[in-house]
Design a protein around this nucleic acid. Structure first.
Length: 881
RNA sequence: GGGGGCGUGGCGAAACUGGUAUACGCAAGCGACUUAAAAUCGCUCGACUUCGGUCGUACGGGUUCGAGUCCCGUCGCCCCCA
């Protein structure tokens, strides 16, 4: 904000009784001190220990961009609270960190700044590690991995060779989105509005030989197993379900008129609408198209036009639907006297279904649009239940909106009167009996193309030999490492133009051969890194089977929802593939998943509508904002995701420097539920800071001889009530942390803090209770604000044990029971007062006491009591009129 | 276009299975302390009010003794798929 108020508590200490205490909490020194203590005690190093239950908590590992951002702080704070909480509960916790270190930005840096991608990446990792350290995360740094190191990716190359053996990896020619500027293949999601996501260049279609992983082999299992992932957000499961896109339908043969024995096979999810067909559309890459285009330049031109479009479904859906009439006609499978025209259409994909569809304009909007454009007939074969079939069909003939709702079949011969579902079944049976097709299941999910024409990735370990074809690199020659001496002064893949790297002898025949110069998609590395953490220094294999089976699956995985489909689905696939290759036992990598919200911040715009940096703004005394250089008015925009372009980023290290890690962590956790987007605000972080300092001051008020082991637990005295509240708070906070409701946990702890502070220390019992209460606050807060908790724990308990190594507090259920309850008393559902009653009071007594209340009497005066509802422990409702 | 989610004070948000709406915090106001400010501590803080109450969880209906919560419809915002 305009005038950053530095927290200043230098003279706020109330008492100077303890000489040893400084007059303010020294955040920086204290946080550093405890980080060093944890490190020297190796508190967070994990080792396999079958005598204790394990808990594996993992946050999605970062890309080493060179700077941490607030999203990282939130992500790793959430995971750290879970890790510390579970550790205190006695679990053997694995909480590692690594770097998703391959990828395009490193190459772009090389192009722009001349730095080598490796050097750029490793130096970024060093920088970011140092930025993470002040957060005080309880990470086992001894397990750190970087995916760009040969010690990591050599195992990935071995995995690929195993996949090849198992038939889970294969090579095929495939259409790809080609970015003509970056000279690389783009994934569908990297194509935005038909343009490359980075370059903005119009994407072209090209055919290349690519490596694929057979994710479709597991399509059914990946879909079915989603049901068992009950600790995943429903949202993510739905997204994966849609992505896999299982649909039931039929393949149907349409014989080509005038071509004996030749037919076009179409896939349809609506076999019930066969009688409404008015055309068949085939892909621009259908074999029949290719054949016809060879002698038809107009068609060839049309195919070329289709190629200029991306391959994504979005691109296809948003593009104008166009077709080319081939002049061929095909015979209706259920009526040999009926033929329809064959179009080549730009909306039919060769690699989905059969590359051909039939069009039923009456019941599919896309087909309707197509029919209107090319003057094709529209024949209704489904009508709403109860509608006049003839009238409905007549209306639809000239309509522009297709009827896609459920209904009953009309104009469909034997199927007439059947529901859509029944008609589908009948149609499939019919085409099967005629030998013209069969029912089938189709997935939207396509095999995963993993080839990338890039330098900074894991080399694909195969060799191309003119004699022997594709030859896997022998395992004893792994890893295939990247050459260091590469140049980025020309477009395209530096590996492909390296003078020597690719030229090798064929491992089979010994003749001259060439290495594969493509590298893996970087999702390859992130699909198994979580298992590598189980045994990260293993040089012989990806990991020891016993170790990986001890730790896997990850019990709690935390990250952004943007990875809901690709990363998470690839990881689920990879785990299954590795299981089938004998690597591990788990089928699912992540038993629990949590998706956090984004960090947002206010934005500022100048009078001309330009984004402004907070440093360019001043706040006037009347509260309005002006631009410093010219005094013009500044408008406060809505809070948006932090991004450089909107100039609303807050630097985490600056925050930690000013307020300390504990305050930053606490504010992140307390402001809102972790799955929601949160607003970062200076006022918020200052509030957290003030609270922590208040705790620090309260510790100075603890009587030196107070004994927390000797406290009253009665429900009558203030001290006893406080102790009971402590037990209640332990129960509530434990539950909240378990369910990742950190904002609620903080609220409960602050309530307890308020109660502790309100307790007057008048005698030994109250002094003991005060100390007991404050210690409880510190312990419950420890997973969230570990440094301050550790500091105050040491101050109160001496140096005997680190709080990081102290068990989570337990509560006495007997002290949670209230002997009196406060009942709400209502008349006709409206609150008229409350009533304190013994919990055991009989209903009749409660009813009587409620009716005796003055407020109740005035409300029911002149009315007749119809009913009295008594819900024990909750409410009394007097119904009168 | 289809699917999902959300809508509560000035603001971020609580409210377990329908049972005292607004916990906890932020901002604001008043007071104490101070030469003064900051900090700290205490109090106030949904709206209206004839001070009895009345209204109030986006809007309109419904179910129920009782609805922020369940059902139907409308509006608005967000996300995903297209």
């Amino acid at each position: 904000m305009a005038k950053p108020r530095r927290p200043c508590f230098a003279r706020c200490s109330r008492s100077s009784t303890t000489m040893a205490r400084e007059d303010r909490y020294n955040v920086k020194e204290t946080e550093r001190k405890w980080q060093a203590a944890w490190e020297s005690r190796q508190c967070f190093q994990a080792s396999e220990d079958t005598s204790r239950p394990k808990y594996y908590v993992l946050e999605m590992f970062p890309y080493p961009s060179g700077r941490i951002h607030m999203g990282h702080v939130r992500n790793y704070t959430l995971g750290d609270v879970v890790a510390r909480f579970k550790r205190a509960q006695g679990f053997n916790v694995l909480h590692p960190m690594g770097w998703d270190a391959f990828g395009l930005p490193a190459e772009n840096a090389a192009i722009e700044r001349g730095a080598h991608p490796g050097q750029w990446t490793y130096s970024n990792i060093d920088t970011m590690r140092e930025q993470f350290k002040p957060m005080g995360l309880s990470i086992d740094w001894s397990r750190e991995v970087a995916t760009c190191r040969p010690e990591y990716y050599r195992h990935e190359q071995k995995m690929f060779l195993d996949f090849l053996k198992q038939g889970l990896a294969y090579r095929k020619e495939s259409w790809v989105n080609w970015d003509p500027v970056d000279n690389t293949v783009l994934a569908n999601e990297q194509v935005i509005d038909g343009r490359g996501w980075r370059t903005g260049a119009l994407v072209e279609r090209r055919k290349l030989s690519q490596w694929f992983l057979k994710i479709t082999h597991y399509a059914d299992d990946l879909l079915d197993a989603l049901t068992g992932l009950d600790r995943w957000p429903e949202k993510v499961r739905t997204m994966q379900t849609n992505w896999i896109g299982k649909s039931e339908g039929a393949r149907v043969q349409w014989a080509i008129a005038g071509r004996d024995g030749e037919s076009i096979e179409v896939f349809t999810t609506r076999p019930d609408t066969l009688f409404g067909a008015s055309f068949v559309a085939i892909s621009a890459h259908h074999p029949l198209t290719t054949e016809l285009a060879a002698t038809n330049t107009a068609l060839a031109d049309f195919v070329a036009e289709c190629d200029r479009m991306g391959t994504s479904e979005e691109a296809i859906e948003t593009a104008e639907k166009k077709g080319y009439d081939t002049g061929l006609r095909v015979i209706h499978p259920l009526d040999p006297t009926w033929t329809v025209p064959v179009y080549v259409a730009n909306f039919v994909l060769m690699d989905y279904g059969t590359g051909a569809v039939f069009g039923c304009p009456a019941h599919d909007q896309r087909d309707m649009d197509f029919a209107r454009k090319y003057g094709l007939p529209v024949k209704a074969v489904v009508a709403p239940k109860g509608a006049d079939a003839d009238a409905f069909a007549r209306d639809l003939e000239s309509a522009t909106e297709a009827f896609t709702d459920d209904g009953v079949a009309i104009n469909s011969g034997d199927f007439n009167g059947l529901s859509v579902t029944d008609a589908k079944r009948a149609a499939i049976a019919k085409v099967e009996s005629l030998g013209k097709g069969q029912g089938t299941i189709q997935f939207r999910l396509r095999d995963w193309g993993v080839s990338r024409q890039r330098y900074w990735g894991c080399p694909i370990p195969v060799i191309h030999c003119d004699e022997c074809g594709v030859v896997p690199v022998p395992e004893d020659q792994l890893p295939v490492t990247l050459p260091e001496d590469v140049t980025f002064d020309a477009p395209g893949n530096p590996l492909a133009r390296h003078p020597s790297w690719q030229f090798v002898k064929c491992p089979c025949c010994g003749k001259d051969a060439r290495r594969e110069t493509d590298t893996f998609d970087t999702f390859f590395e992130s699909s198994w890194y979580f298992s590598r953490f189980c045994d990260p220094r293993n040089a012989d294999s990806a990991y020891d089977r016993n170790k990986v089976d001890y730790w896997m699956p990850v019990d709690q995985y935390i990250g952004g929802v943007e990875h809901a489909v690709l990363h998470l689905l690839y990881s689920r696939f990879f785990t299954r593939a590795l299981r089938d290759c004998g690597y591990l036992s788990a089928s699912e990598p992540f038993a629990g998943l949590f998706t956090q919200g984004m960090i947002c911040h206010e934005t500022y715009k100048s009078a001309e509508g330009k984004w402004l940096d907070p440093s360019e703004i001043d706040r006037r005394d009347d509260g309005s904002l002006v631009k410093i250089d010219d005094g013009s008015t500044v408008t406060v925009g809505r809070s948006e995701k932090m991004s450089k372009s909107k100039k609303n980023v807050v630097d985490p290290n600056h925050i930690i420097d000013t307020y300390g890690a504990d305050a930053a962590r606490l504010f992140m956790l307390s402001d809102c539920p972790p799955d929601r987007d949160m607003d970062w605000s200076d006022a918020g972080i200052e509030g957290a800071w003030r609270y922590l300092h208040r705790l620090w001051r309260m510790a100075g008020d603890v009587a030196s001889d107070a004994n927390p082991a000797d406290v009253p637990t009665d429900g009558a005295s203030d001290a006893g009530k406080l102790v009971r509240l402590c037990h209640k708070t332990i129960a509530d906070v434990s539950e909240d942390l378990e369910r990742l409701r950190f904002n609620n946990a903080v609220a409960r702890i602050r309530e307890l803090t308020n109660a502790v502070q309100a307790l007057k220390q008048t005698d030994a019992a109250s002094q003991n209770a005060y100390r007991f209460g404050l210690e409880m606050v510190i312990r419950l807060l420890a997973p969230m604000t570990p440094h301050l908790s550790e500091e105050l724990w040491a101050e109160l308990r001496g140096a005997d044990a680190l709080l990081a190594e102290t068990a989570w507090p337990t509560f006495d259920p007997a002290l949670l029971v209230q002997d009196t309850v406060t009942l709400a008393v209502q008349v006709n559902g409206k609150l008229r007062g409350t009533l304190d009653m013994p919990k055991s009071a009989p209903q009749a007594e409660v009813e009587q006491a409620a009716l005796a209340m003055d407020n109740v009497q005035t409300q029911i005066a002149g009315k007749t009591i119809r009913k009295v509802v008594v819900v024990p422990g909750k409410i009394v409702n007097v119904v009168a009129n």
